[in-house]
């Protein structure tokens, strides 16, 4: 028997979920919304932190703080692009992120002196449970999935 939303009363855990009717192309729906949520949190966290660092202690580690600000900007762009189904922009943002986390991560390991203070991307995002490393990969996979759903069958 097929479950349809509205057929059974919503319990404490809520009624049955609506399943996407195949071929829906919207990067802000379903799993995409989870991705947007995580990106949003990161844009907020990285942005606030970078703003405070730039405003109060810019002289201590200008490179690290500018990188933090750049990372925050990229997260913000990715958040907006994903929530509005701007796939090309989202693709660029996710790619920049992946490259950024790999390059900065590698540099911060090779030359720790150049990064006296932590950035979001230092040591491949170790300070943020490696989420900065996983997020762009998930984003790119999701965008590819969307592109495939978009193709006429």
């Amino acid at each position: 028997m097929a479950e349809r939303p509205g057929q059974e009363p919503a319990g404490a855990l809520g009624g049955p979920a609506a399943e996407p009717a195949g071929g829906t192309v919207d990067t802000s729906r379903g799993p995409g919304r989870v991705l947007v949520a995580v990106y949003g949190v990161f844009a907020l966290a990285a942005g606030a932190r970078a703003a405070v660092q730039l405003a109060t202690q810019f002289d201590e580690a200008p490179l690290a703080y500018l990188l933090s600000a750049l990372a925050a900007a990229v997260y913000l762009v990715a958040t907006v692009a994903l929530s509005r189904s701007g796939r090309r922009t989202a693709l660029v943002a996710c790619t920049v992120e992946l490259v950024g986390v790999l390059v900065v991560g590698t540099l911060s390991l090779l030359d720790p002196a150049a990064f006296p203070d932590e950035t979001v991307w230092s040591n491949y995002g170790q300070g943020y449970v490696f989420i900065p490393l996983g997020l762009p990969v998930l984003g790119l996979l999701w965008l590819r999935h969307q592109a495939e759903a978009d193709r006429p069958r």
Binding site: A10, A12, L13, G14, G15, P16, A17, E19
Partner: peptide, 14 residues
């Protein structure tokens, strides 16, 4: 996580 696993929307508990 549980409601996602059970394929449900959110409800009163949430």
């Amino acid at each position: 996580g549980v409601s996602t696993g059970l394929r449900r929307r959110i409800g009163a508990a949430h």
